[in-house]
Every structure is written in C-alpha cells, then in structure tokens.
C-alpha cells in the first residue's frame, strides 16, 4: 500500500491565505460599520414625502382657510382688551402653549421696507403698524394655523417637522416672493397672514406676520 504524499504549503503562503480570507470575510460582513454623523442622521430612502404633503396641504387646507381669516384691526383690539378671550374668539392654540395662532386679513400701506420685512400701516383710522415678513420663514405657525394637520397622523414627529419646513418654503417662494418684488413705501397691500402671539403687540413692538396671500394695489 502506497502512502499518498501530503502537499506542503509554505508557512508564509499559509498566513497570506488566512489574511486574504479574513479580509474578504470582513469586507462582506464588516465587524464595525462607521458612519459620519451627517450620514447617520440622513433620512432613509423610503422617507416620507414632506414636499408632497405640503403641496396638498396648501391647496386642500390652507387656500380655503384664507377666506375665513379674521379682520386684523378687530383682532388687535381684542388682544388689547383680553388676550385670552381674543384667543378663544379668533385664534387657536396647539397642545399646551402660552401662544395663540391667528389667521388675519387687512389692507394697509407700506411705510418702510428693510431686507427681511416691511412695515405696514393698517388702512383704518389710527391704524396699527404690523410687519410682514419678507425673509425666511421658520417654525410651525403656518402648518398649524388652520388646525387641519393631525399631529398624530405620523408616528414619528420628525415627519411633521419636515412638513412644516416644506410649507415654509412654499410661503417664501410664493406670497413672500410676490410681496418682496413689489414692496415699496406708499404701496397699498391687501393681505391674508398668520402669526402667533402671547400678549398684545404694541407700537413699540409690532406684530410680525407671515403673508400667505398678497394683492398689491396702486400707490394712493
């Protein structure tokens, strides 16, 4: 009976083979996967489409609601009388909050223009001054002012935060762009806007409103 000769592989080659196999295995199944924070925080590929939600909100919820906006002069008067009562009559709060959201309409004359806002004197006797934002818009005021977005409709609140951001972009590219393009002292503007407030605004600190529909009139 003859003995089968054993094939001998040199030791360095053995180590090299082990190294190559280990490298291949860890390439397929890495022991540790390091991701930069920005990648870890990036949305998944099947992420909720906040932009589509925002566009639907705009046409389905916001535009019809604009017709229900309260006269701004009346709201300001009510705020000066009793802010809590004004909120119950004209505004709404979201969850537990000391602030109240209002949807208001008015006509006024632009008094001055600065890079991020214009001051408007309301077209009523002894009209108050308010400011209309012409810069960036942040927060959830526009999303929540109609009360039509169900905050429990998404399990993850980050989705609805993204919706607020997408709606704000629509405001900036829509009514704010229109206002910014035409804003000049003396120009008459008819607008529907929203804003939030805790206490009555004053001449010293006028109410900052976010324009949602703007009609530019002729200078008087």
């Amino acid at each position: 009976m003859s003995e089968t000769p054993r094939m001998s592989i040199p030791r360095p080659l053995q180590w090299l083979s082990v190294g190559v196999m280990t490298a291949l295995a860890t390439w397929w199944v890495p022991l540790v996967r390091i991701k930069p924070l920005d990648t870890a925080l990036a949305p998944a590929a099947d992420a909720f489409d906040a932009e589509a939600f925002a566009r639907a909100f705009w046409t389905r919820d916001l535009e019809p609601a604009l017709a229900t906006a309260a006269p701004l002069a009346g709201v300001l008067e009510a705020l000066r009388d009793d802010a809590a009562s004004a909120c119950r009559t004209f505004g709404r709060t979201v969850g537990l909050s000391r602030s109240c959201l209002y949807l208001v309409r008015a006509t006024g004359t632009i008094e001055s223009v600065s890079p991020n806002e214009c001051r408007v004197v309301l077209d009523v006797p002894d009209g108050d001054v308010v400011t209309l934002t012409t810069g960036l818009v942040f927060g959830t005021t526009v999303r929540d002012v109609t009360g039509t977005v169900d905050l429990a409709s998404r399990a993850d609140s980050r989705d609805l935060a993204a919706v607020a951001s997408a709606i704000n972009k629509l405001v900036v590219t829509g009514p704010i762009a229109a206002l910014k393009g035409a804003a000049a002292p003396g120009v008459v503007v008819d607008f529907v806007a929203c804003g939030q407030v805790q206490t009555a605004p004053s001449a010293h600190k006028p109410w900052k409103l976010i324009p949602l529909r703007v009609t530019i009139g002729a200078a008087p």
């Binding site: 979201v94 969850g95 537990l96 909050s97 000391r98 429990a152």
Partner: peptide, 10 residues
Amino acid sequence: FPQKVPVAVE
C-alpha cells in the same frame, strides 16, 4: 385622549 399633545418650548 389626544394621541399627541405638543407642549410649546420658549
């Protein structure tokens, strides 16, 4: 009960 009650931050 409301499923989610947001509480404003100041």
